[in-house]
């Protein structure tokens, strides 16, 4: 707590470095199970292995710097509740993709989305209606994309 800021390991960078290290190890290991080919005819595992090794090396460098506490960035998730809500709403909308009644689903999704972002019901419904109409006109009738 009382240590000078520069000596505190950077937690964000430690986590990022750790995740990338895991990715690098996974790539290296999984690539070695793909056919590796020969010198003159490199196989499917050749390139992913290279990328994996490079990722491991680079993430070790990042972890090293993070431990020294040289970087200054901090991960901070402001308004997590609002973001969670928006992501959750979108997730449900996508889950229902292709189940029919595209226009109705889209309208309800947009209206809830806007209402969640503290627009009045009236505004939410109007904007959602306008957006739904635009998207249906452009994609369903203009480009003949079949949205269900």
């Amino acid at each position: 707590m009382s240590e000078p800021a520069s000596a505190v390991p950077n937690r964000t960078d430690l986590i990022v470095g750790g995740l990338f290290l895991a990715l690098g190890v996974y790539l290296t290991v999984s690539a070695s199970m793909l056919p590796s080919g020969s010198g003159g005819l490199p196989g499917a595992g050749f390139f992913p292995r290279g990328v994996g090794v490079a990722t491991v090396l680079l993430s070790v460098v990042l972890l090293f710097n993070a431990l020294k506490g040289t970087a200054t960035s901090r991960f901070a998730l402001e308004h997590g509740r609002v973001i969670g809500g928006v992501v959750g709403l979108t997730f449900v909308y996508l889950l229902l993709w292709g189940t029919g009644l595209f226009a109705l689903r889209t309208f309800v999704f947009l209206a809830l989305f806007l209402r969640f972002l503290e627009q009045s019901w009236r505004t939410s419904a109007t904007v959602a209606g306008a957006l739904t109409a635009t998207i249906a006109a452009a994609f369903q009738y203009g480009l003949r994309v079949s949205l269900e």
Binding site: L101, A103, L104, A111, S120, W121, R122, S124, G129, A133
Partner: peptide, 20 residues
Amino acid sequence: MRRGGWRALIVGVALSHVSC
């Protein structure tokens, strides 16, 4: 206010329901 909003919502739902 609220009632007006609901009316808009219902009209919107009805409009978007008009399928071919």
